[in-house]
Nucleic acid binder design. Structure first.
Lengths: 226, 226
DNA sequence: ATACTCTTGTTATTTTATTGTCAATATTGC
DNA sequence: GCAATATTGACAATAAAATAACAAGAGTAT
């Protein structure tokens, strides 16, 4: 009986990083890598790498390390990159267009098959050979095509409504770009991308650094304080 | 002597979320909130909320809870949202344009003052009253203007080079959209946004869910297995 | 004013994540 | 082929994060 316990999200979120580094190694024609060497490149401990990988199976070999290509493939599989997911973009504004034009997703097996918007100025225009359709046609489209993932780049106010709609139509995953924590009752997986949150964290870090350097100066100039 | 120990990044990354929820509460004219109620809204424990906030000071009051407006302001301050950071965008491709057109950043005190690209087709065009300048003018621009943050949306291959350049010119923070872990020796703070990583995690989650439901079916149909 | 309720800030506990250690075993060099 | 070296996977130890517990104090109702 399969009693392997659920792998923590912390580990999962590191997998794409491993994937990227392995991809780089492949490009450099490096065929084998030890956890120690990878650890040096990635700036994390070798122990963590071995432990992470062992959540999914013993991909390495004692005295040798890991074979780059096969580890790469293993991680691809774990991430489901060979599943050939189909995607649609809902909201063809600037962010939606940026997503549509970003080629890397296709390369990883995410095939864009539809773009939708309510704006009549946008409907009919083409992005990468895909014509932007009106939102009214969304329901029929999803019913007639297998759509795995919807990328949501609609205005904040419409996000919840659109999300509920596509969730009800049987979409498997939502990639949400609105600054809200989408929660859906349906059986849909959600990944939120909160750009503003990320920018705020950057702001915080800068702020901290500034405070630090100010404190440094204070310490240097006021030698009389205890 | 200020001996408060560094607040963990895990806490910091939750601050923008608190900020968002408080912002919502303000809009709903809710003036006070208890950790318990906020916990119910956010789906995290009340204990965590209290502990997080207490990293920065006792903003609450026993028997009352937290005053929404003043907590909102406190968190704004912690995040440095009142610092009026200036930003530039390097790389005016689709993602750069999306960033330039995203109004929320301005609202939070991030003022866009320059956009740069190498493409002569783009140079001279205006986005939101800001003319796209050629990369050759970047150095002078940074020397003549206080630029806090550079948003990097240049092609993968050029990212490292551009990052090093602006870091050397005294920029405080980098917001990196390339799928690489930027590391800079200079005194620059970096926040990476890895969209592909996020999409891969979504793929993983979908994959997991699929496997789960398949397993469910197996269990249901094969009652003879032990 | 008094009793009772609510809710914080803090400390204790539990859980989760990371790091360190080491026996087992494959590889490498001679 | 044998000794020396390298490196994993498993597990133990440590560190960090999340949760629970609770005393103390403020708010509320009567």
């Amino acid at each position: 009986m399969d009693t392997k316990k659920k792998v923590s999200l912390a580990v999962i979120r590191r997998l794409p990083r491993y994937f990227r580094y392995l991809s780089d190694l492949l490009q450099m024609d490096i065929t084998r890598i030890s956890s120690k060497e990878l650890s040096a490149r990635m700036g994390i401990t070798a122990s963590q790498i071995r432990q992470d990988l062992n959540c999914f199976g013993g991909f390495g070999q004692q005295g040798y390390g890991y074979n780059v290509e096969s580890l790469y493939k293993e991680i691809s599989n774990i991430l489901g990159l060979n599943n050939d997911y189909t995607t649609i973009i809902i909201g063809a504004g600037h962010m939606g267009q940026a997503l549509a034009n970003y080629g890397n997703f296709e390369k990883r097996g995410y095939k864009l098959i539809g773009i939708f918007d309510v704006n009549p100025e946008l409907v009919g225009r083409k992005i990468k050979d895909i014509e932007i359709s009106h939102m009214d046609t969304l329901e029929d489209f999803i019913k007639n095509n297998k759509v795995d993932i919807a990328m949501l780049s609609v205005p904040f106010e419409q996000t919840r409504c659109v999300a509920d709609k596509v969730a009800g139509l049987g979409i498997k995953g939502l990639w949400n770009f609105s600054p809200m924590d989408l929660k859906i009752s349906y059986d849909v997986v959600i990944e939120n991308v909160h750009l503003s949150d990320s920018l705020m964290v950057l702001g915080y870090k800068i702020n901290e650094k500034l405070k630090e350097s100010k404190q440094q100066k204070t310490i240097k100039t006021s030698k009389h304080s205890k």
